[in-house]
Amino acid sequence: MLTARKALWNASRLLENVIAPKSLQVACISTDQQQHGTFYEFRTYCIQPHQNAAFLRLTNEKIHLRTAHSELMGYWSVEYGGLNQVFHIWKYDSYSQRAGVRAALAQDPSWIEQYISKAMPMLTSQDNEVTYMVPWSKIQRAPKEGGVYELASFQMRPGGPAVWGPAFEAAVSAHSAVGYALPVGVFHSEFGPTNRMHVLWWYEGADQRAASRHKAHGDPRVVAAVRESVTYLVSQQNKLMFPTPFSPSK
């Protein structure tokens, strides 16, 4: 039965690629990416200012209790664009896997007693967002440790990738193709604000990021691509972040 369904799905995709207009093809490609099941949960925690150091120290000591249940992609401390915040990304293969992880954590006495009971009073808020990686992106590791990461979040106009997908891809590619920045990953929101895109960039340092941005703003290839993309842009937010000592992405 599963084989037959897969064959039918592939046949329908092939037919749509032949007869569908270009805008609909973009939408189908985005949907196909989600059929793999893998998604990334973005979590942002706001910490009480006087507890920031203590929270990071506790997390450094106890994070192994959490990573025993699912894969941590990266954990960062926000330096610019949000004070006393941490941002982390968790990878899941399916929603059922995540549900199982959350259930297991709720029954893990070590996690609850050694971490949750101590960490939660240190926080002022928590926020999460479910994202998928776009089809034309893949996770890239930083070439070396000691750099900085920029999370650029773009609120796009309603309509999804079928409307603004090609223009957004062109703008990201214009920056990365000539080496202005390394895109660690490009993500499209599923739960949380809709029509939101995230680009996680890596730079050697904050000054190198500033110099690269200055060069990019004078590059006609980048200017042309960005000018097209921003016609679909509603708002944008950037955060510059430093990886924590326990982050898999250094």
Rank of each mutant, 00 (worst) to 15 (best):
T3S: 11
R5A: 10
N17I: 10
A20H: 04
P21S: 01
K22A: 11
K22R: 11
S23N: 09
S30E: 15
Q34F: 07
H36T: 15
H36P: 05
F39W: 15
F39A: 04
I47Y: 01
Q48C: 04
H50T: 14
A53M: 13
A54V: 15
R57N: 12
R57Y: 13
T59Y: 11
I63E: 08
A68T: 07
S70L: 09
S70N: 15
W76V: 00
W76L: 02
Y80D: 15
Y80V: 03
G82T: 03
Q85I: 03
Q85N: 08
Y92T: 01
R98N: 13
R98W: 10
L105D: 07
M120E: 11
Q126T: 15
Q126G: 08
D127Y: 12
D127E: 15
T131H: 10
P135I: 10
K138P: 00
K138Q: 14
K138F: 12
K144H: 10
G146Q: 03
G147F: 02
L151R: 01
G160D: 08
P161D: 03
A162I: 09
V163M: 09
W164V: 04
G165K: 02
P166T: 04
A167C: 09
H175I: 03
H175V: 08
Y180E: 00
V186N: 00
F187L: 13
F191P: 02
N195W: 10
E204A: 06
A211P: 01
H214Y: 14
D219P: 04
V223N: 03
V226G: 00
E228K: 13
L233M: 09
Q236W: 10
Q237E: 13
M241K: 11
F242V: 15
